[in-house]
Amino acid sequence: MSAQPPLLLALDLIGTFVFGLNGALTAVRATRLDVVGVVTLGMMTALGGGVIRDVLIGAVPPATFQLWYYFALALGGGLIAFALSRKLHRLEMPITVLDAVGLSVFAVMGAGKAVEYGLGVGPAVLLGVITAVGGGTIRDLMIGQVPTVLRSELYAIPALVAATLTVAAMGIGIYGLSAALVAASACFVIRMVGVHFNLNAPEPPGSRDQRR
């Protein structure tokens, strides 16, 4: 895969760190895990989606195991969440914002890498979404929860939009830093609008009545 522009690489690294932080913090809130469990779940959140993508497209060993700084950032995020778990609730909104940045960049980078490895439109879009939400899905399953991406909030939909825009831009030959930032920005805006207005994806008709 071609080298990432410095700005996208920086955002990718920030996303890895924040996903590690957010994933470990979610584990702290939901379970009684020790430091090994908390940090492990943080790292899975940060790295899991990218590993799944790389294995599926045959880019092995996955980039996570070749570039030490991804591993180190995920580990650092998990350790900080464990050490400062009592205080991190005060930073919930900044963490949510940075998590949206990570979601946006991972969706773009995941879809772009899939296209560069020769996948078609549908599979490339799907792998972009998997890159963005796969780690969090693994975390939720390991702590015995229905994955957040399947039950609430606008999370997968923004990633789907970013991945689709990325694949479309590459298909018509205009993909570059500007196009990548536009796709990531679209994901970020949709995600944050969903957070601000507490929006969720549509539910099956009558599902709310059944919960009453």
Rank of each mutant, 00 (worst) to 15 (best):
V121L: 14
L9T: 08
L11Y: 09
L41V: 08
A100G: 12
V189N: 00
P123W: 12
D99Y: 04
A107V: 10
F65H: 08
V36E: 08
P94W: 11
V193H: 12
L21W: 01
T137A: 07
A186Y: 08
T137G: 04
I143R: 04
A72Y: 06
F19W: 03
P205Y: 02
A30P: 02
V129S: 01
R29P: 05
A83P: 14
K87N: 10
T26D: 07
N198I: 06
L79S: 05
I130H: 01
L177S: 07
L88S: 04
V35Y: 06
R211I: 09
V101S: 01
L9W: 11
A168C: 11
G50K: 01
G49S: 04
Q210A: 15
P94K: 15
G49D: 02
L9A: 13
V60K: 08
E92I: 13
L154K: 02
L11N: 02
C187A: 15
G120Y: 12
A63W: 02
C187P: 00
P61N: 01
V189G: 01
G42K: 00
L79P: 06
L154W: 14
G110K: 03
G176P: 02
I174P: 06
L150G: 10
V97N: 00
G112V: 02
V167C: 04
D34H: 09
R29G: 15
P202Q: 13
G58C: 09
T166E: 02
R86E: 09
P5L: 04
L73G: 00
G58A: 13
Y117N: 09
L88F: 14
A111N: 02
P202L: 04
V115H: 01
G136D: 05
S85A: 15
I138F: 12
A184G: 15
A124G: 12
V105Y: 03
E203Y: 13
A124F: 05
L181R: 03
M109K: 06
V182E: 07
G122E: 08
L41E: 02
M43Y: 07
A114G: 13
S85M: 05
V55M: 11
I57G: 04
G78S: 12
V36Q: 10
D12M: 10
P6M: 03
A184S: 08
T31E: 06
V161N: 00
V105C: 07
I130R: 00
P205T: 05
A159L: 05
R29W: 14
G194H: 09
P61F: 04
T96K: 07
V167G: 00
A183L: 10
V193C: 09
V193Q: 08
G112T: 10
G194W: 09
T166R: 01
V195P: 04
V101K: 00
V115R: 03
F197C: 09
H196T: 12
S85K: 14
G171V: 15
G136N: 05
V189F: 02
T64W: 03
V146S: 08
G206C: 06
G20I: 01
L75C: 07
L79G: 05
G76C: 10
I190T: 09
N22G: 14
V97I: 15
L7S: 10
H89Q: 09
G48A: 12
R32E: 14
D12F: 10
Q66K: 07
